[in-house]
């Protein structure tokens, strides 16, 4: 009986094992598809925002701005949700990483378009939210973890009043590189709060004072 038992076991174990790997690949692909869909939704929302922006010339500015501010709010929320989904899936153990990398590049470009739209809306309609571009790297950046903690806290505290756009600089996305060059980003982490560069790790006090310098009405500012 002995040999046949070992062979039978090998066949069954292999079938379950391969099924598990296929299942893993399929689940991963399904997850990436969902994330891609959400990214494309975000893209559509950005397109929509740009379209609404074009309406500014025709509609009364107050009316257009009403729409635009709520659109900006939506954009901020969608990108936040997407960011945490992407982060969760990124930290999970995966068999195939390749699909995820292209998704993340697409997602990062969309984030930048999102940021541009939100900035434009803010200028035109005097929105009271603050935007933060967060340049980080997953390689050799111990401070990035701490910076992430600070930003999570800020986001949690200020909810809709702050929009954070985390940009993964390891992906070599051309628009990220262009932004880095234009803001003069040299080290990671680096923050761009309302178009001013803050190089290196910024403590909670530093981020707070930078935000409050811009808008003193925020909940975290001392009034």
């Amino acid at each position: 009986m002995e040999k046949s038992v070992y062979i039978k076991t090998a066949v069954i174990a292999l079938v379950i094992f391969i099924a598990g790997i296929m299942m893993g690949l399929w689940l991963g692909q399904a997850k990436v598809n969902v994330l891609e869909l959400t990214t494309s939704d975000l893209k559509d929302s950005v397109d929509n925002a740009e379209f609404q922006f074009a309406l500014m010339d025709i509609l009364k500015p107050e009316i257009a701005c009403n729409y635009l501010i709520s659109t900006a709010d939506e954009l901020g929320k969608t990108s936040d949700e997407l960011a945490s989904e992407v982060e969760r899936y990124e930290s999970a153990q995966k068999i195939a990483e390749s699909d995820f990398v292209s998704l993340k590049r697409d997602y990062t470009s969309t984030l930048i378009r999102d940021w541009v739209a939100v900035e434009k809306i803010k200028k035109a309609c005097e929105g009271d939210y603050v935007t933060i571009l967060y340049f980080y790297s997953n390689e050799n950046c111990e401070d990035c973890k701490d910076q992430g903690i600070i930003l999570t806290y800020i986001k949690d505290k200020l909810d809709g009043n702050v929009m954070i756009f985390p940009l993964d600089t390891d992906l070599d996305v051309s628009t990220v590189n262009a932004l880095e060059e234009s803001f003069g980003v040299q080290t990671y982490p680096s923050l761009v709060i309302e178009n001013s560069l803050y190089s290196g790790y910024q403590s909670l006090e530093e981020v707070t004072s930078a935000l409050c310098a811009y808008n003193n009405n925020l909940e975290i500012c001392e009034h």
């Binding site: 893993g24 690949l25 689940l27 991963g28 997850k31 969760r88 153990q93 995966k94």
Partner: peptide
């Protein structure tokens, strides 16, 4: 956040 199960091969 820590309770989120990711849909990977380990879940299977």
């Amino acid at each position: 956040e820590s309770l989120h199960v990711q849909p990977t091969f380990m879940a299977w």
